[in-house]
Amino acid sequence: MRLPHFEHLKPASLQECLAALAESGDEAGLMAGGTDLLCNMKFGVIKPRKVVSIGSIPELCQVSEDGDGNLQIGACATLSDLVQNPLLSASFPALHDAIKSVGSVHVRNMATIGGNICLAPRCWYYNQSQQWRRALTACHREGGIECHAIGGAQRCHAINSSDTAPVLMALDAQVCLRRKDGERWLPLRNFFRDDGNRHTVLEAGEMLTCIVIPKGSAKHRSLFIKVQLRRGLDFAIGSVGASLGGNGQGKEITLVMNSLCSAPLILAKAAQAIMEEGLNDAAIAKAATAARGELGTVTNLFTSAGYKRQIVEVLVKRALTELKTDVVARRKPH
């Protein structure tokens, strides 16, 4: 597979980059590690006329604590650098686990956290060669009115496979979106759109520059669990990021699933069961059952809808049980 032709821009600073983006609009594709963008370009899934290289812009690669003790992560920090960062493994072990589970050592050496958050959604029909796609009529992703992955679907159901997104959402992370003439901050949970065709709220000329995890989230117990066909390289067929705040009774619990729908999914009903009844076995069983019903249309990629609902139930049960065990262990007098 060869890359299509494009113009290569390498801005030296963020300002220069934002100016280039403002000028190029929809024609530009942002490249940090390149592991997602170049792969999709080879398949002809995206066709940017300009590739803007941002991986070595210094201000995008920094990881630091701000004045209030919140952790600020530049969008272009590589996953390998983050895995080795003591700020991360000490305060946010779940994020450390999620990052370490991405791809392979090679991929993590190249890929960045911003790239993982913005990871293009994938579909078993659309993410194939152009020749394959030409065999059928245009799908939603190509400007058509059909979905070849799920018959009768009214929108694109490509799947969001980001591993870092569910954990960052559970940890209440905020993201900074910059454009030439301004910036906006929003919670990561408002960043995604449940539409495989346009899966984030990013506008043309806008880019994700920074992720901030609030200091308070470091006190939460958090975890990440992922189901894959193979332990290396494969995208997940279901993952869960969970965080438990407060005194561990279950009043402040967040469960976020990913790799099942077009956007990471906050399991409100499952969390509700725990909030009402506490973190005990009966409530965990109830939450796991409730979680099955929270998935929408899920037959894209790898396995059947029934199996995916089973994955959700199992992951929710495992995550809550692990959190409960952790709480009990910490309560025991030493």
Partner: peptide, 12 residues
């Protein structure tokens, strides 16, 4: 660092 040369642009 081990990297994938098929997903790295030579100009980079």
């Amino acid at each position: 660092k081990a990297i994938l040369s098929c997903l790295t642009l030579a100009v980079e």
